[in-house]
Amino acid sequence: MPDAESRLKSLMLASLEGDARAYRELLQAVSGRLRIYYRKRLGAGFADIEDLVQETLIAIHTRRSSFDRSQPFTAWAYAMARYKLIDHLRRARVRAAISVDDCEELFAVDETEQAAASQDVERLLSGLPEPVGEAIRLTRLQGLSIEEAAARTGKSATATKVSIHRALMRLSAKRGTQSDADK
């Protein structure tokens, strides 16, 4: 995954021309990202996550004419996801009478920092060999266990653990920080 934005954007441009194959690939990639996005904000056990993912996919489909071909794709898709998230929380407030105004503010701030932080993380990870970067993404960002990540990448659990450990050491050395990668 050298540059997610340019890959997704070229898929989107092809989709707008009617390329169903590119579109299927795009929606699959986006649904994975949406799942992570909602899981991070609502908690992994949250039952409505798949509903939200599907609702957002449908919105992307029916409102694809709001995509400006000269603008980035990910910002557009995440703005859709964020709107659906806030809408969901607003409806949940009606059900549970929780103030959502605070939540909106919280997410607005979170959004910007999150975006900047994940860009930083992506930049750091892109400096690593692909399998190691992937292993870190799976365990540290998507919250899989070492075993699950090992199963996905087809390596042994021990090898995965060691390579993650080494890579994190190298990353923290690269950033010049003293943060202990062990924790």
């Binding site: 989709s15 707008l16 021309e17 009617g18 169903a20 194959r21 579109y23 299927r24 929606l27 699959q28 649904s31 599907q54 996919l57 449908i58 489909h61 694809r64 004419s65």
Partner: peptide, 13 residues
């Protein structure tokens, strides 16, 4: 759903 949406895709003006 993705299959369904992909089948529904038309070129966008």
């Amino acid at each position: 759903l993705i299959e369904h949406l992909a089948a529904d895709l038309r070129p966008t003006a």
